[in-house]
Nucleic acid binder design. Structure first.
Lengths: 335, 335
DNA sequence: TATTTTTGCTAAATCGGTTTAGTATAGGCG
DNA sequence: CGCCTATACTAAACCGATTTAGCAAAAATA
């Protein structure tokens, strides 16, 4: 059959190399897989083959190889948005770790769309990837893809017990809230977003616990959900309520994007309050170093998350060991 | 031969489906590829096959398919750093465009390492990817990978004539420099970095041209290279020279990262100058909306770059058409 | 009725590797 | 010398798809 490889530059195959060397495909295969000595291929033959391989710049077809071996040495990395610096950084480190183990990474973007995510995963599976690292949009249907090694991160279903790498959302948010309290703030608002995601819910709980622990009462009026499609205005409105009506002086934001909006809003509309008000939020941004008010933030151990995801996945791929979920420690930058 | 697919959940293959339906593999293949009618497969048989396929949740093995077809429907996307938001955003849009054409994207991170880049590309080729989109670390050896459809972006060798999507670095930098001049700045410094990369060189030329065009002389003392491994201090020092010794009031930065450092340095060490000094730079950052001094910046048409890269690549893959390089227009945010 | 055409399907080669089970020759040992 | 082992290699099956060439029976045509 003709395919595009047949036209133009003729691709060399193992068969061609074998012919040129006057040996069988088997011999070439052994030599290329460093099993020449073990298989008693004479060094003369080995050298001859390697020379021809180099000469023709022959690179084995990994499709054929993978088909035969039943292993692609490829893992899928599925995230809601690869342009989000958080996922981008995780991707980079996953890629680095994977490289050490001779794995390649296929990145897939679900665009926060549950159906697209399913499609992507099925596609990865049909491409025979060896495993998947997933930040899912659909935290409820875990274990949907039985039979494929899978590690979850960032978005983890509450009933997920195995194969995830998480961080302690609740505890971290509790800590930064307590830091604001320690600095003398007694009225602290929380700017959140409407989301079923457990990590968001945990952060809210953490904020509440900090207040209760410190002997304050929690007031639902001080917790405001943001319309994510209309962030800018929505944050301004929320700040107005919290700062002006409810007299809060400390604000905890559920994530860095909202905190950045908060910094902008405070500078633009409530600049007279800059000296009085303090912010804290989940996830860092370089911006927080430069701007007023400085923002105390929770830093996720990105490199560790990536490393642990890959280790856990590899153990599942290589040794069929399914680990319990693991919760990593965050750090806090107090500004 | 045994492989991991043989253990546990037995994977279904086209052969199994054929057996279950009591037909040949050929027939199943025709039906699955929507060629049933064309190949005169009775609708009864077609329906039977499709039912069994659905029943067993059968997904054709894409490795085998690709091996046979000589096409993987996969493209490689090779960049120096996927955690850089610029490349992240490009990746996201490439992925979206690719999806429409039923292509998958393999992202590879060269870590700005020339040798790693070669390795990655060779690996992608051995995986039979259909084409590559590349922001190269090694702009000089273009056309090294003859025979593989390849489109360059962001990092383009000056002698590259075909198959690239670029933006006009020189013209854009000229424009923002002229904007500073128009706002009344007569002494304008340029903060750059030591780099052989043509886009950097073009930006320097653009800055110089703006000065010359406006009747000023260019002064090499006003162009300072930054030590990228020691950005923070290096930028402070550069600003001190330009603002305090050379009496510049406008500063053009070669990229957004250095400009962000500049904003921080100005606020930290030269806050008395904030009202007098104005910044401009290449590439935007959200930060520039929030901070003082506000920074006029060049915005690259990220979505367009991605779209054009993919279109150009597909034309090369599908129709063997090699297009001339294309230069896209930037926009400027004046603040 | 005999011939041609259409319908409905399949055997077998192929893509490019890996691997098992084997063969032929040479050398070592009693 | 005869047997055994080590050396050096290979034929052929297999992974799971696609595709060409072709066959048999039914329907259409002459």
């Amino acid at each position: 059959m003709l395919n595009r490889f047949s036209i133009g530059v003729m691709k060399v195959s193992i068969r061609k190399i074998a012919e040129l060397a006057g040996v069988s495909k088997t011999t070439v295969s052994f030599v290329l897989n460093n099993r020449g000595d073990e298989k008693n291929i004479s060094s003369a033959t080995q050298e001859k083959i390697l020379a021809i391989v180099k000469d023709h710049n022959y690179k084995p077809n990994q499709l054929a190889r993978s088909l035969s071996l039943g292993k692609t040495n490829t893992i899928g990395f599925v995230v809601p948005d690869i342009s989000d610096p958080f996922y981008g950084k995780i991707a980079k480190h996953i890629d680095s770790c994977a490289e050490e183990r001779f794995f390649k990474v296929m990145i897939a973007n679900s665009h926060e769309d549950k159906n697209k995510e399913s499609e992507l995963i099925n596609n990865l599976i049909s491409r025979q990837i060896d495993g998947i690292i997933l930040a899912s949009t659909q935290v409820f249907e875990s274990n949907k893809y039985k039979g494929v090694p899978l590690v979850y991160f960032d978005r983890i279903s509450p009933n997920q017990k195995d194969s995830f790498i998480d961080i302690n959302n609740q505890y971290s948010t509790e800590q930064i809230t307590k830091l604001l309290i320690k600095r003398g703030h007694s009225k602290i608002g929380f700017i959140s977003l409407t989301s079923y995601l457990p990590n968001i819910q945990d952060r809210i709980t953490g904020y509440k616990n900090a207040l209760i622990d410190s002997g304050f009462v929690t007031d639902e009026n001080n917790i405001i959900d943001i319309d994510y499609n209309n962030k800018k205005e929505s944050v301004v409105k929320a700040l107005k309520t919290l700062l002006c009506t409810n007299n809060c002086t400390g604000i905890v934001f559920v994530n860095n994007v909202l905190a950045a909006e908060g910094v902008w809003a405070l500078n633009t509309y409530f600049s007279e309050l800059i000296e009085k008000v303090e912010f804290a939020c989940f996830d860092n941004l370089d911006l927080f170093d430069y701007s007023l008010p400085k923002v105390t933030s929770v830093v996720q151990p990105i490199e560790d998350i990536a490393k642990n995801c890959l280790e856990m996945l590899c153990d599942q791929i290589d040794n069929s060991i399914i680990h319990k979920g693991k919760v990593l420690k965050t750090t806090i930058i107090e500004r």
